[in-house]
Design a protein around this nucleic acid. Sequence first.
DNA 1: TACTATACGGAGGAACCCTCCGATTTGTCA
DNA 2: TGACAAATCGGAGGGTTCCTCCGTATAGTA
Lengths: 199, 199
Amino acid sequence: MTDAKPMRADARRNYERLLAEARRAFAERGVDASLEDIARNAGVGIGTLYRHFPAREDLVETLLRERFDTQAEKARELLVAEDPLEALYAWLIGFGETSAVYRGLTEMLADAFDDPESRLHASCDAMRDAASQLVDRAQAAGVFRTDVTVQELLLLLHGASWAGSHLPGTGGTERLMALVFTGLQTSEQRGQRAVSAPR
Amino acid sequence: MTDAKPMRADARRNYERLLAEARRAFAERGVDASLEDIARNAGVGIGTLYRHFPAREDLVETLLRERFDTQAEKARELLVAEDPLEALYAWLIGFGETSAVYRGLTEMLADAFDDPESRLHASCDAMRDAASQLVDRAQAAGVFRTDVTVQELLLLLHGASWAGSHLPGTGGTERLMALVFTGLQTSEQRGQRAVSAPR
DNA sequence: TACTATACGGAGGAACCCTCCGATTTGTCA
DNA sequence: TGACAAATCGGAGGGTTCCTCCGTATAGTA
């Protein structure tokens, strides 16, 4: 887990510059942004970019890892929350935001889920495991459908998050996710309370 | 609406060949398939492809138009079906299938929805208008939430369809769409009946 | 058959991907 | 401090795809 060797000063500097520039480019143009542009704007040769990040996925993964870890951590915290349903919902909203940071990320994440070789796969996996316990707890409490797998849940909410980001105005993502979530509670719960009131 | 002038025989022949090859390529490799490959495999020069279809979107649009028209037609038929909720659900399932024919179509369709200049936009619009009446009817009957717009509905189901296609095995799409649909019925309906029983 | 509108097809410039390797820089040790 | 080796840099270059432009070929017509 520890970095085997500390990077040389120039390497570290360029690494940081590339990350900063990639963050900007992906936010502006989506995850398909030109890598040559990123290298140029970071004031670095294209070779340098490829040495630090052999594949586009590595770049995305590095940028997302922090968020993924945060999500996994959040899941652990929410595991002791009072209300299992509220806890799961709160976590999913965060997940939705994470999965919509860059345009085009949706497809990339879904592919990473499918492909164990993918660089993003490991990060996704860790997050999914954390979420899994949250789901188990809600299901055990009888407030969440037991015929839905974690994978289905995440994929579906991911899709809802994506759909929301294509809606005009703000709040679309949370709204659509809430709508979907409603359908996933057990029938008794659905009638009795709303986890969140879509506007 | 009528074709202004009939195409020359060779033009028509190449046009058809390109469509057939594009259908194959998009199905195999998604909507990002190489246009030069398509032209080559159709036994036609790249220039010919671009004359018939100035943009990739034009090619996709031509292939999808038929499906879109079918969907719009189906909406009109279902308008007189006995059960408004069943009718809407049946239509949405068909919509989900249509929106998942080619890998990568999801993003393209969403962009077309947003951009009125897009070649796909007109086709989408016609379909949405047809769906709109189906939704109105279900809402008037008090069985479908009134705080959901047609755009939200289509985008959300489109997302569910996409999510389903990333699930292993078959039937994922219909299953996820059913889950989402459940959450969109009015509370009374949700408790009373299931439109379709997800496995 | 001859003529013209129509259609064909590929050369070519631009953007991007990714690899490879000679040049440069950093950190260290005497 | 100076010199050396390991680490790093950066861009030339080969490949792919996109799209345009225009000289050549062909279908349809009189």
